[in-house]
Design a protein around this nucleic acid. Structure first.
Lengths: 187, 187
DNA sequence: AGCGGCATCTTGTCAATGGCAAGATATGCT
DNA sequence: AGCATATCTTGCCATTGACAAGATGCCGCT
């Protein structure tokens, strides 16, 4: 299982996932075609089925990858809830394709055990950060409510940013804009 | 232009939009098929094209309808920002199909003048409510930032609710759960 | 009343897609 | 070396979106 060049034709699974990320990032999940991915990878149109069964299978794998990436990003953002929030938005923008799939459960098998596990892992990190904050400032707040509010505001901001719904005056740096908005939670 | 029964075969445009709302509400926008809508309406597979040109055209019409519905709902929620927020979430849940399309610009022609106009109308109502709040409590806050924060938190909550990402303990009433979360902005 | 114009809908067709079945080919294990 | 298996290919079918050309019913105009 060497990472790059392989045996038969290359390591297809990764190549297909990478191509999917590229396509979705450019044109959205609706534009995704298994046959197109196969062409990009230089294999026949039925090859993807052996790795992912069907389209939903491929998107399920993408979702797992996405939740794991997100958990990693959140962890590396440190203990500060504000920075974790900024990292959440940053993740959504930099890994747009993953993010767009992750929260569209009608596109993949959301009940897949791998997805559930990965999604739980990411959720745990988020809750951890919120709990950390509540502890630090002598937090009165119900941590359930606080994490919901925090999650909602960063998720909403990220979604609206990706949808292109936000006004232009915010400029081109989502991290900076997100920081300002999230801080509103702490005042 | 009588509302119901019509002339040639019925008033198709409305029938198709209604059927689209039903399908999307049940299975998401990915499951939408023009031919299926035509079958449901009892017309031939090419009939929809005359009203909407293509799939994107139909979804564009749905988005316009959605933004107008949302503006209406927000207006009827009154001046209170908290209630407007609850109404936003309530709209997303009750008009799930519209909501899911509205914020997925890759599915329709987001640059369509009608969409832009309708979306602006809805945005104006939201900003109005935020401005009203700032004025009332001697608001120090930058209204730009406040409306962004308010929009983000309600949009995020609604999106997560629809995605089924929120924990079960919230129960089945999104309005109540949303009210608790939104209040977090005012403390 | 009759006629022409037009919006509405239908039939026919094509390329592209997802998914399935059956076969070919390389890989690794024994 | 030989066999089992994962990997990939070729061939096929139903469905879909989109287009073209024709049929059908409604309207206003003379």
């Amino acid at each position: 299982m060497t990472p790059t060049r392989g045996y038969h034709h290359g390591d297809l699974r990764r190549a297909l996932l990478d191509a999917a990320v590229e396509v979705i990032g450019e044109s959205g999940p609706a534009a995704l075609s298994l046959r197109d991915l196969a062409r990009r990878a230089g294999v026949s149109h039925a090859a993807p089925a052996h790795h992912f069964r069907d389209k939903a299978g491929l998107l399920t794998a993408l979702a797992v990858q996405g939740f794991d990436l997100l958990a990693d990003r959140l962890r590396r953002a440190g203990d500060d809830l504000l920075e974790a929030g900024v990292a959440y938005v940053d993740f959504a923008v930099r890994h747009r394709a993953h993010f767009e799939v992750m929260f569209r459960p009608d596109l993949y098998r959301a009940d897949d055990p791998e997805v559930r596990a990965a999604s739980t892992r990411a959720g745990d990190v988020l809750r951890e950060r919120v709990a950390g904050l509540s502890a630090r400032d002598g937090g009165p707040g119900d941590p359930g409510r606080d994490s919901l509010a925090a999650w909602s505001i960063v998720h909403g901001f990220a979604t609206l940013w990706l949808a292109g719904a936000l006004p232009d005056r915010l400029g081109g740096d989502p991290r900076e804009a997100a920081r300002v908005v999230i801080r509103r939670l702490f005042e």
